[in-house]
Amino acid sequence: MGTITSDNAGAINPAARAADTHAQAKPAARETPTGAARALPAEPLVTIEPRRSWAAPDLGELWAYRELLYFLAWRDVKVRYKQTALGVVWVVMQPLLMTLIFTVFLGRLARVPTGGVPYPLLVYTGLLPWTFFAAAVTQGASSIVGNSGLITKVYFPRLIIPAAAIAARLVDFAVAFAILFGMMFYFRVGLTRQAALLPALVVLLALLALGAGMLVAALNVRYRDVGVVLPVVVQLWMFVSPVLYPSSLVRAAAPRAFRLYALNPMVGVVDGFRSALLGQPLAWAPLAWAAGLIVALLACSAYVFRRVERSFADVI
């Protein structure tokens, strides 16, 4: 481009300029550069060029940044628990109060059939995965815009941000689990062998939250009214998922419509949690469908996110 090349400047030895900082500084503070440059790698570590529109996420890079994921999630948790005066109390009270209210209105007054399970346990086993999911998706959605300070100043795989926001919610999730075990003890309901499914279910739920969270996070950067629409969608989604009632209610009332109903992956997941915790027979078909759907969603979201992430710093 007609510019002066830098080769001449290469002759200047920067090591010769390690001047002392301050008249008062100790002379020992001066490091002695050896001048012998370490060998450069044959291939560039980083190549910067315009990317193809649709590229697969770089899993190796994500793995390399796993500690950042941990720190960002840790920050979210720490700040949240520090900022609210009630801290943990609020995390404990929220699902308990919801359970109490639903028990009074749906359990006692509307008499939702529970198949012999105490209603508080039924609703809590539904609220447990649902509350995590709803909070994770909502947090994930606002995470990119909320961390614009990082995005415009430092490079790292942007996927880390919604992933960390979702991971931070796992702490609340764990607290909620502790409450559940307290309730089960109170209602004298023990865990069965089916509880062995729980880790897999937690992974599935977290992946679903990640898939949905990534997608809305990417959309939220482009379309700022996603934040307005999302709570409504989440609310509606709760009612079409077996959170406040058992899915058997739908199956019994409308066997044909149940197929349509079970397209919602949260049906399989919430049912799965409930069965695993309360030792009820597990409906494999909706769960298998949910698992398949979650993998597909995750892949789609990852591609969409990667396509949009290139412009984050320019758009935010």
Partner: peptide, 18 residues
């Protein structure tokens, strides 16, 4: 160069951690 934003054209090769 710090990969915060992508170039529209061109290329840069960095032979070290940034």
């Amino acid at each position: 160069l710090s990969r915060i934003t992508e170039p529209t054209r061109g290329r840069a090769a960095l032979y070290g951690r940034v």
